[in-house]
């Protein structure tokens, strides 16, 4: 397994090159995006410390694309004090918590559903179309209704968002897991049959381990869906914390620098969550060649 390490390290090389290219292109693209609005602001006769549109492009109050210095300022302003419920770290934590709880709920339901789907063709025929239909309803449309509905039963705050996240994340897990449970090698099934293994043993010792690669592929899709779900839920329901709440607030205030900073935090959160699933996969499936 150690022999495969270099290829993983080598995978970082091309990534770094792309990052360098993006960083090099950032400044000219930023100027190009802002020069128009800067020109208009100058023409309107506003009091500015800069003379030319190009010079003003990196100093706009609400830039289309913020300059690196503006981003750094915005980052400091929104990230401190670190423990404040108004600052980003706390709100990222809230969204991360909702997402992970949502993913957990989705995993439990998804695996449960998969077991039923695999056990009974009749159950599959009766429910699969409805499960598919459930996924065609846009989350944005269903979130406020669910929040109100859950509110009726006193479920408020953190939990409704996790449930909405779970609502869109359970589906890929149910599909991936039922495919995984059916993916056991026919020869292995024959082998278990020669041992006269019980159905429970066949699930525990064969079908379940055989399904793990499928389950983890599904989890990687599900975790990003859950993140989208919890942010959308925060935006479209009454919320007092979370990335979505901050996005909604700052977009109403047209604070574009803040929106960019929040977006950055969201991206880092997304990458971290996927990395977490990858780490879990390596821990649970040590036999894997990757």
């Amino acid at each position: 397994m150690t022999a495969l390490r270099p290829s993983r390290a080598a995978g970082l090389g091309p990534m770094l090159i792309v990052a360098l290219i993006a960083a090099a292109l950032y400044w000219p693209l930023m100027l190009a995006a802002n020069v128009g609005p800067a020109g208009r602001t100058l023409a309107s006769g506003a009091e500015l410390e800069c003379r030319t549109a190009l010079a003003c492009a990196s100093q706009l109050r609400n830039p289309v694309v913020p300059a690196p210095a503006q981003l750094a300022q915005g980052f400091m302003r929104l990230s401190t004090p670190v423990t404040s419920p108004l600052a980003l770290p706390y709100n990222v934590g809230v969204t991360a918590g909702e997402t992970l709880l949502g993913l957990l709920l989705a995993t439990v339901t998804g695996i449960g559903l998969a077991l039923l789907l695999v056990a009974s063709r009749a159950f599959e025929r009766a429910t699969l179309p409805w499960l598919v239909a459930s996924q065609t309803v846009p989350v944005v449309a269903i979130a406020p209704m669910l929040a109100v509905l859950l509110g009726q039963y006193g479920v408020q705050g953190f939990l409704p968002k996790a449930i909405i996240a779970a609502y869109i994340a359970f589906f890929p897990i149910a599909v991936g897991m039922s495919r995984g449970l059916r993916s056991a090698d026919p020869l292995h099934l024959d082998l278990m049959r020669t041992y006269h293994a019980s159905s429970a043993q066949t699930y525990r010792l064969l079908r379940f381990p055989a399904s793990l690669p499928h389950l983890f592929t599904a989890l990687k899709v599900a975790v990003t869906s859950a993140l989208v779900g919890s942010i959308v839920a925060e935006i479209s329901t009454i919320s007092f914390s979370g990335l979505g709440k901050m996005l909604a607030e700052n977009s109403r205030a047209s604070d574009t620098v803040a929106l960019w900073v929040i977006m950055g935090y969201g991206a880092v959160l997304g990458v971290t969550l996927v990395a977490l699933v990858n780490a879990l996969e390596r821990w649970v499936t040590p036999w894997s060649r990757r």
């Binding site: 020869l187 006269h196 036999w287």
Partner: peptide, 21 residues
């Protein structure tokens, strides 16, 4: 006879479980 585990079967392919040592 199968339920009484009268026989062991070596398949034409090894059929080892890849998640087991």
């Amino acid at each position: 006879a199968r339920r009484e585990r009268q026989y062991g079967y070596v398949f034409q392919a090894p059929a080892l479980m890849e998640w087991r040592t």
